[in-house]
């Protein structure tokens, strides 16, 4: 990948004022962490490799980041999908962001959101779900409901309700999350038992048809809860049942929240 060109482009964007901020990655103690570059001469700190899995689109909900619009983001295909989806959900204007597009070990240059949408559909139209995740989903589907419930109870028991999953997800942009609503109280606040179950499952449902499977939530979870098993399963259902391909069409209506007279009503009994 042409990292030098990426750095050069980032510097140029800042130097000529096309971007007020470049968000990418830098190396710290052997790990990649998000980098916030405001001066052209800092662009050389930018790095990129496969371990850079944080979804930088999540930063676009922070007011102090939005203040610096237009913001240029280092974005792999999944992150580009997040941006397209944010636009489809009216959280972004087309000229709010620029994309420093990376993918398949290639640097694709500086793209507008419209250009990123084209690149996605031409080159990355089939982003497969992680094979390991699929295999694990299959294993869970073979289980009896009791076994499966036990599996998830054990996983959710670890949840401390730090909400790192929510924070890491670009699509969790609600100003007041359902877990913080107390009139009525939908979800128990105790980091235990049914409250943890409810929180994690409700979050997955709120992302049904909206999750672009970037994996940032699972990577963010300090406790190692396999959140992508839930998200990928619901993504598969949304795809199979409703042809949902979130993040490929900035004009698309959300699966949950739109209605079509041809929708299958077979599940209503």
């Amino acid at each position: 990948m042409d990292l030098a060109k990426l750095r050069q482009d980032a510097a140029a964007l800042l130097a000529d004022g096309r971007a007020g901020l470049v968000i990418g990655f830098r190396e710290r103690a052997g790990a990649c962490v998000p980098a916030f570059v405001t001066d052209a001469d800092q662009a050389d700190a930018l790095v990129y490799d496969d371990t850079c899995i944080a979804n930088l689109a999540a930063y676009l909900r922070k007011p102090e980041i939005r203040q610096r619009r237009p913001v240029a983001l280092v974005a792999r295909p999944h992150v580009m999908r997040s941006l397209i989806l944010l636009k489809a959900e009216h959280q972004l204007q087309g000229d709010d962001v620029l994309v420093l597009a990376v993918g398949d070990d290639t640097y694709h240059g500086v793209l507008t959101l419209a250009e990123a949408e084209r690149l996605l559909n031409e080159t990355y139209a089939d982003l497969a779900t992680d094979a390991q995740v699929l295999a694990e989903i299959e294993r869970l589907e073979q289980m009896s409901p009791e076994e499966r419930a036990r599996f998830w109870s054990e996983q959710f028991a670890k949840c401390t309700r730090c909400y790192a999953c929510r924070a890491a997800c670009p699509m969790c942009y609600c100003e007041r999350c359902i877990v913080e609503k107390n009139v009525p109280q939908w979800i128990s606040t105790a980091a235990a038992g049914h409250g943890n179950y409810a929180w994690n499952v409700i979050r997955a449902f709120h992302l049904a048809g909206r999750c672009i499977e970037c994996g940032a939530c699972e990577a963010a979870c300090p406790q190692g809860i396999p959140l992508m098993l839930l998200n990928a399963l619901l993504a598969r259902e949304a795809r199979d049942q409703f042809d949902a391909r979130p993040g490929y069409d900035a004009e698309a209506e959300p699966v949950v929240g739109s209605w079509n007279k041809d929708d299958d009503e077979g599940f209503i009994r």
Partner: peptide, 8 residues
């Protein structure tokens, strides 16, 4: 800038 406001 980098802080996403979770409790981790």
């Amino acid at each position: 800038y980098a802080c996403l406001g979770c409790g981790a």
